[in-house]
C-alpha cells in the first residue's frame, strides 16, 4: 500500500475482493472481511447476490454497525429469507448451489492450501489454532476466494497442516484425492490479486494494487511467485466503496 493512501489495508482487502463477486452469485461467507466485501458488492454492483452463513442462514441483510461476532449469532439472521439447521446449509455446498466460498486465512501455500489448525508439529504444536470450522467443507466443495494480509510468514512454501484444501500438491492431485469440484479461485491481499495456473495449479500474480511493485509482492512472499504474462494494475478504492465499508463497520471492528 502506498503511504499516501487514505484507507487501511483491511479496507483495501474488502473493496478488492468485493469487486470479484458477480451479481446473482450465491456466496458462502465468513464474518469479517468476507462479510463486509459481500455486503459491499450487494450495495454497489451485485444487488441479487445472496449471502449464506454457516450458522444456517440464507440471504440476510446485515444491519450497519451491528456486524455479527461469528456466523452463528442472531445478528446473522436480519432480514434473512430462511434459517435452517447448520448441517443443511452446509449440505447446499455439497449439492452444488454455491458459487463462491469466501474466507480469511492465517497461512497459505503456493498451491492455495490453508492452515488454521496448527503452527509447528501437530503432535506437539507450537500454537494450537481454532481449527477448520466449515473451512474444510467450503474449500472442499466450492470455488474459493481468500482475503488476507500479504506477509512472508503467512505465504509459506508449504503449510504446516492442510486445514482447508487448495490444490494440495498441484497438478491433478486435488481431484486425485477425491475432491472433484471446487478449488482456489483468487487470493486477495493488500498488495495484489493472485490466481492459480491452470496446469501446475501454482499461485500466480494476476494484478498489483496501485503503487505496488512486483518486487514488493515477491519480498513479502515465502516462495517464488509466478507472474501472469499480462499483470494488471487494480483501480484504487473509490470514495463510494470506502463509504459503504465504513458505514457497515463504523467501529472498525474488522477494518482497523
Amino acid at each position: 500500500m502506498t503511504e499516501a493512501s487514505n484507507y487501511t489495508a483491511s479496507e483495501l482487502l474488502a473493496v478488492m475482493s468485493a469487486r470479484l463477486l458477480l451479481d446473482g452469485q450465491i456466496v458462502f461467507a465468513g464474518v469479517g472481511i468476507p462479510l463486509l466485501a459481500a455486503t459491499l458488492a450487494q450495495r454497489v454492483h451485485a444487488p441479487s447476490l445472496t449471502i449464506l452463513f454457516e450458522g444456517g442462514v440464507i440471504g440476510p441483510f446485515i444491519v450497519p454497525g451491528e456486524l455479527p461476532p461469528s456466523t452463528n449469532e442472531q445478528r446473522c439472521t436480519r432480514k434473512a429469507n430462511m434459517v435452517l439447521p447448520i448441517t443443511d446449509v452446509m449440505l447446499l455446498l455439497q449439492r452444488g448451489y454455491i458459487d463462491i466460498g469466501f474466507m480469511g486465512g492465517a497461512q497459505i501455500d503456493r498451491y492455495g492450501n490453508l492452515n488454521s489448525s496448527f503452527i509447528g508439529d501437530p503432535e506437539q504444536p507450537k500454537i494450537r489454532l481454532p481449527g477448520t470450522g466449515g473451512g474444510n467443507d467450503i474449500s472442499s466443495l466450492t470455488n474459493m476466494i481468500v482475503a488476507m494480509k500479504h506477509e512472508k510468514r503467512r505465504f509459506v512454501p508449504k503449510v504446516d497442516f492442510i486445514t482447508s484444501p487448495g490444490f494440495l500438491d498441484g497438478g491433478t492431485s486435488r481431484s486425485d484425492a477425491g475432491l472433484v469440484s471446487g478449488g482456489m479461485f483468487r487470493v486477495v491481499t493488500d498488495l495484489a490479486i493472485m490466481g492459480f495456473d491452470e496446469q501446475s495449479k501454482e499461485m500466480k500474480v494476476l494484478s498489483l494494487h496501485n503503487g505496488v511493485s512486483s518486487e514488493q509482492v515477491q519480498d513479502n512472499t515465502g516462495f517464488d511467485l509466478a507472474f501472469d504474462d499480462t499483470v494488471q494494475t487494480t483501480q484504487p478504492p473509490e470514495p463510494e466503496e470506502l463509504a459503504v465499508v465504513r458505514e457497515l463497520d463504523p467501529e472498525s471492528l474488522y477494518t482497523a
Binding site: 454457516e54 452446509m90 455439497q94 473451512g135 474444510n136 467443507d137 472442499s140 492442510i162 494440495l168 484425492a177
Partner: peptide
C-alpha cells in the same frame, strides 16, 4: 469439519452407523 460434525450427529439421529460425504478428503 463442521459439516462432518453435523453428519455424525445426523447419522446418530438416523440410526445408521455412518453417512457418506464429499468433504474431509485430501486434507
Amino acid at each position: 469439519s463442521h459439516m462432518s460434525m453435523g453428519l455424525r450427529y445426523r447419522a446418530g439421529a438416523m440410526g445408521v452407523p455412518f453417512l457418506p460425504s464429499r468433504s474431509m478428503m485430501g486434507s
